[in-house]
């Protein structure tokens, strides 16, 4: 059975809402190796030969099943790159929960680079949840560089929820997607950075078939001296519709760069980009203060709501 200490259990709860061994297929990776794995009749998890990742095969028609593949790191100084490939069969409908929690109390940097590739067959539906979390007050940094590639066949639908609220010092996220006709991609990213943290998120979504659609929305808060860059590019190569939105709050000396990128290569491509960056509106704080909240409590409620 699983051998996890309290810190590892806490990280698992943070990144995957896991308090016990999950139902369905799973692989739990801790400090560089797998500490628990299970496949099901419909979902097969196969470790790569070199131990640095997994191949996950989901049979066509699999419905309402889930895959959990959380990663936790509690030793200072680990640096790893892990490759996970997901093959999602036709008309399957599954939830994949990934996520990485790093607790670093040491002086050396801890780094996890997860490269995830999704091959989504016709008509399949995937909900993908990825949470990042860092803790520990060591001088060593907590670094996460997720790379995600999504290849969607006709009429497939992928919903991605990416959350990073606390404790990750450095992130460079790249997400690349290619959509065939009728395929839909929905991305909801929520990000908060503190202190001297750095977070860069780059998207390139190519819509290659008629009726493809992409909706990439980021909500973020940059506090203290942190820096964020949101660079979302949508490419319309057919009659398709795309929307990206970056909605951000800056506080203290936080900085945010939002880079809109729209490329329409077809007269029937309809692409929209929205970006808004600003501090918390003064009248929002005032309103909550008239309800009896202190200024700090008001700010907290506004940010909690914004990132909900």
């Amino acid at each position: 059975m699983l051998e996890l200490d309290e810190i590892q259990k806490r990280l698992l709860a943070e990144v995957a809402d896991l308090h016990k061994v999950p139902e369905g297929a799973y692989n739990i990776r801790s400090n560089g190796g797998s500490v628990g794995r299970a496949s099901t009749e419909n979902i097969e998890i196969i470790p790569r030969e070199d131990g640095q990742g997994l191949t996950v095969r989901i049979k066509a028609g699999t419905k309402n099943e889930s895959v959990h593949i959380p990663v936790v790191m509690t030793k200072s100084g680990i640096k790893e790159t892990v490759y996970n490939d997901f093959y999602i069969g036709e008309d399957a409908d599954v939830t994949i929960v990934a996520g990485c929690g790093i607790d670093n109390c040491g002086t050396q940097d801890s780094q996890h680079d997860g490269i995830h590739r999704f091959f989504v067959e016709k008509g399949a539906k995937v909900k993908y949840v990825e949470k990042h979390y860092g803790s520990g007050n060591g001088a060593g940094k907590r670094i996460l560089n997720p790379g995600t590639e999504v290849y969607q066949k006709e009429d497939s639908r992928v919903e991605m929820e990416m959350v990073q609220i606390k404790g990750v010092d450095d992130t460079n996220r790249t997400t690349k997607a290619e959509l065939a006709a009728g395929a839909a991609l929905v991305v909801r990213e929520r990000l908060m950075t503190h202190n001297d943290q750095n977070a860069v998120s780059t998207y390139v979504v190519e819509m290659n078939g008629e009726g493809a659609s992409a909706d990439v929305v980021s909500r973020s808060v940059a506090r203290d001296n942190s820096y964020q860059k949101f660079d979302a590019k949508l490419v319309g190569n057919a009659a398709c519709s795309g929307h990206t939105e970056c909605d951000s709050i800056i506080m203290d000396k936080g900085r945010i760069l939002a880079v809109p990128g729209l490329e329409a290569n077809d007269v029937d491509a309809a692409l929209v980009h929205e970006a808004a960056i600003g501090k918390i509106a003064g009248d929002q704080i005032i309103k909550l203060m008239t309800l009896g909240l202190s200024e700090a409590e008001a700010e907290e409620q506004i940010i909690n709501g914004f990132l909900k």
């Binding site: 909500r219 909605d247 509106a281 009248d283 929002q284 005032i286 309103k287 203060m289 008239t290 309800l291 009896g292 909240l293 202190s294 200024e295 409620q301 506004i302 909690n304 709501g305 914004f306 990132l307 909900k308």
Partner: peptide, 28 residues
């Protein structure tokens, strides 16, 4: 402060109410 007055029992419905992204009616 506004907060202290609210705690002492002053409530105020604004002429132009404020909108909040994310905060739900129940929260408010």
């Amino acid at each position: 402060s506004i907060t202290e007055r609210a705690k002492r029992g002053i409530a105020f419905a604004f002429q132009q109410p404020v909108r909040f992204k994310g905060i739900q009616v129940f929260d408010l």
